[in-house]
Design a binder for these strands. Structure first.
Lengths: 68, 68
DNA sequence: ACTCAATGTAACATATAAGTTACAATTTGT
DNA sequence: ACAAATTGTAACTTATATGTTACATTGAGT
């Protein structure tokens, strides 16, 4: 699950810790999502988008091997 | 979790059953997502979009003020 | 009215997202 | 080089998305 969250977060001048607080999750979850190591829920994706002021398609996509 | 999946599915001329088969999930899961009764994973959202030939924001975006 | 395909929903089981705690590694500033 | 902030990640627990089976409801066609 590749994504642009890290870049958008940094542009929004937020640390993982701060983003996690805003969204109400843990820092570890932010880290794992940024690293593409898991598959967040739609609700969480939307909250992350609101926090970094982006839309879903700007942040999240799927690459071919994930479709397999 | 409100969304536009049902409309897009019908425009794509797919039944819930057929869409479920394409995406590799059960008919029941499609039904529950269309009814907004749960919170699908990002990967599933992307697969559903791919199947009905739409983008994430067209099907699953919710404005922050509507997000309760 | 009848039939059949399509859809809505339970109860329960399973897989996995996400939390908790903890510690290591990396980056940044001085 | 050092210290502090930030980030990566592991083991374990908990919450919930999704599957399975089953049955009820709705809608279109005859």
């Amino acid at each position: 699950m590749k994504n642009n969250l890290k870049i958008a977060r940094i542009k929004a001048d937020l640390t993982q810790q701060r983003l996690a607080e805003v969204v109400g999750i843990t820092r570890q979850t932010v880290s794992l999502i940024e690293k593409g190591k898991y598959n967040p829920s739609l609700k969480l994706c939307l909250q992350l988008c609101y926090a970094v002021n982006r839309k879903l398609d700007e942040i999240f996509w799927i690459n071919e091997e994930d479709f397999k």
